[in-house]
Design a protein around this nucleic acid. Structure first.
Lengths: 113, 113
DNA sequence: CACCATACCTTGGGGTCCGAGGTATAGGGT
DNA sequence: ACCCTATACCTCGGACCCCAAGGTATGGTG
């Protein structure tokens, strides 16, 4: 049973992966490092997280992949499909709603103390 | 094995419950509705979520409980311990870090200025 | 007296995340 | 030559989180 919309299971890795792939074509190993880099290592989902998400998204038609060999290395590049774009905007929306709700209870203050 | 700190498993219900109990003594059933109320029904963790969290927190010494009968109804009121307060500030911090990291990847859109 | 709201609780299952491990190639150091 | 690291793919087992559904009991209302 596909998970509900208002789920508390964040699905953050999926969100980030979709976003990265919206901006540019990338391959799995690259994504793992990109997330770590762009979040200043605050988030470091490993390969054990990223690859399964990638496979799941492709299976659902949210991503398309193609093999490419660079410097004798075989890489699997992923790109966003229309369905994936929809899923991204949707997930992104959910994240904002969740965050707003949390802030509402926590005192609704902007961070940065 | 107790979960890591930088976990992506949000633990939002726990965070909200701790926050509510920091502000005032409450009982389970009340908490369920308070979350729904204060988030304009954006979040509605049911009793199946709240009670187990409550029990877990108490077991860990983050909460203290006392039975009280009001209008012939038996309620279990919870309050925050020092340990719970620590856990709250900690979890709250984690949430902000997580949110910042997500925003960093998503484009760092300013929320409500 | 039936029904709903209150108030507590547990169980079963699905989803998410993670560390650990497995395979293979390219390149640098020794 | 050889090893070690980085690159690049992958899967598995388990831990944890969340949820819907159901179970028990009492008070108030129609």
């Amino acid at each position: 049973m596909a998970q509900q919309d208002s789920s508390l299971s964040a699905g953050v890795p999926e969100l980030l992966i979709l976003k990265l792939l919206q901006d540019q074509e990338m391959y799995g190993y690259e994504i793992v490092q990109a997330i770590s880099d762009r979040t200043a290592a605050a988030l470091t989902p490993g390969e054990g997280v990223v690859y399964p998400v990638l496979h799941g998204l492709e299976k659902d038609g949210a991503l398309k992949s193609r093999r490419k060999t660079v410097n004798g290395r075989s890489r699997v590049y992923y790109t966003l499909t229309a369905k994936g774009a929809k899923r991204l905007s949707h997930l992104s929306q959910s994240w904002n709603t969740l965050n707003d709700a949390v802030q509402a209870v926590m005192g609704a203050r902007a961070h940065a103390v």
